[in-house]
Design a protein around this nucleic acid. Structure first.
Lengths: 190, 190
DNA sequence: TGTACATCAGTGAACGCGCGTTCACTGATGTAC
DNA sequence: TGTACATCAGTGAACGCGCGTTCACTGATGTAC
């Protein structure tokens, strides 16, 4: 049953990606090693040929989630990004969505290793959003960074509030719409 | 070992309050029935004399958390509320803090019953914040409500982001400070 | 290039453990007379 | 008011189950000659 080195490496990456999506859907405690391996197309025993523990996988899956986000948001316009982030689609399919919105509350209860992955991910997101302000003065850069942090908190909070409401409830949609309108207005004003 | 009706009722309320705090600290999956009952000062067997299941308790504990929040924020000034909400103290002691910030991600994975408690709680929070706008026109009221929703999303998101960062990290504090400054500025401008 | 052997990714049964829940039991409280 | 009995909050052992993890085994891959 052995497999080529390349195949094994691909399988490992596939397990991490599957875990990253499942964790976003159900939380770290909501996905068992057996669940995950079955979803990835394997039996559970092989898990420990790739990872030392479930805790290790959680750290890797978080990093994978941030890497996916960066790859996908690479060239997108801010307006398109906001529309997508505050869409019903994103709210209703956390497995395909933002790691921060789906798992930051879970991460808060995880060891420092996981939290560091989140902090690094947030930091890289902020750095990327700052590209437009690279040639400004120190004060303006500081203000721009503060604005990015505020925008991120606002978007993440909106998705979290909307997800906490019953499916198809008016309030859940109203939250997305109110926050979307305000976020887009802020882009236009800047 | 029987106890007076009044005592039994008080014990039940004590279990719900203890659960509400423990859930906020560790999440719904992070607290076992045995953990909880021990923390409340009982053995685990008696749990089912008070509740039909852990799921039932989760619903009650959520309602208890919102009731506590309403009671505590009753007479507070908006500025004081924002300062407290975005304080390191609130970030670092979720057990004493806001149910939305601590558990909305967990609630998103719970049955409709729990989500309804969250939606009702959010709705009551918004209604309370609208008291100052009671005599305005329909358009102004709608705008005021949208502003409250945005403010709530912003505050909740800030606490979540800050909690996801490593303890005592600079980024965790920066998030609270940036969002606090912006939130307070918004109050002054209004 | 061909042969012999070591490696190790993947399998599936098994481990101890803690989970939510059930149950027989206790004994003070509440009730009926 | 006093007595006899039913009630039921709380106890602690036990239930089946799924968890994270370990292990002996398989057999194709990778390596040494």
């Amino acid at each position: 049953m052995k497999v080529t080195k390349a195949q094994a490496q691909a399988n490992r990456a596939h397990i991490v990606e599957t875990a990253s999506a499942l964790f976003r859907e159900r939380g770290y405690d909501g996905v068992s090693v057996a669940d995950l391996m079955a979803a990835a197309g394997f039996t559970h025993g092989g898990f420990y040929k790739h990872f030392r523990s479930k805790a290790d996988l959680i750290t890797e899956a978080a990093a994978c989630g941030f890497a996916q986000m960066e790859a996908r948001t690479g060239s997108a316009e801010r307006v398109a990004l906001i529309r997508q982030y505050l869409s019903r689609e994103h709210r209703d399919t956390p497995g395909d969505g933002c790691t921060i919105a789906a798992l930051s509350a879970d991460a808060a209860r995880q060891p420092a290793e996981v939290k560091q992955v989140f902090a690094d991910g947030i930091e890289r997101l902020l750095a990327k959003a700052m590209h437009g302000a690279a040639d400004e003065g120190e004060g303006a850069q500081h203000a721009a960074r503060a604005r990015r942090i505020n925008d991120l908190a606002h978007l993440v909070g909106a998705v979290l509030l909307s997800r906490a409401c019953p499916d198809d409830s008016a309030l859940a949609d109203e939250i997305l719409e109110s926050c979307g309108a305000a976020a887009l207005l802020r882009v236009k004003e800047a």
